[in-house]
Nucleic acid binder design. Structure first.
Length: 107
DNA sequence: CGTTTGACGGTCC
DNA sequence: CGGACCGCCAAAC
């Protein structure tokens, strides 16, 4: 049983609405982790943990698909986002400011 | 138990 | 606008 902060990250990631994206920093700040790296680390562990998490909806603060190389295929992350209506340009989310969603925002 | 690493973020120049 | 640098903290070594 992993630390509680893993579950927090997974749960928070599942909160992200369809067709919206969030950032590591936003989740880290919302959970009070104090370190955005922990979010990416937890999501990486989610693969080995077998927990299904929409990690493709989590990008860095620039809106870049920084984690695409950690998926089964480097293009899977972009494909999943485009499948949700999120347009990707040069590994970056189009209209990122508009697509951005913050956990505390509650939508 | 000290060192390195990592799907990040912010500042500095 | 972009590269260098530091802080952040858990896990791996």
């Amino acid at each position: 049983m992993p630390s509680n902060f893993y579950q927090d990250v997974y749960e928070c990631t599942r909160m992200i609405p369809f067709g919206r994206v969030s950032t590591y920093g936003a989740i880290a700040d919302y959970l009070g982790l104090g370190s955005a790296r922990m979010v990416g680390w937890a999501l990486n562990k989610s693969f080995t943990n077998g927990i299904e998490v929409p990690a493709h909806r989590v990008v860095n603060r620039k809106g870049e698909l920084s984690g695409r190389n950690h998926f089964f295929t480097p293009t899977l992350m972009q494909e999943l986002l485009e499948n949700e209506g999120v347009q990707i340009k040069d590994n970056k989310v189009r209209n990122f400011n508009d697509r951005f969603w913050h956990p505390a925002q509650g939508d």
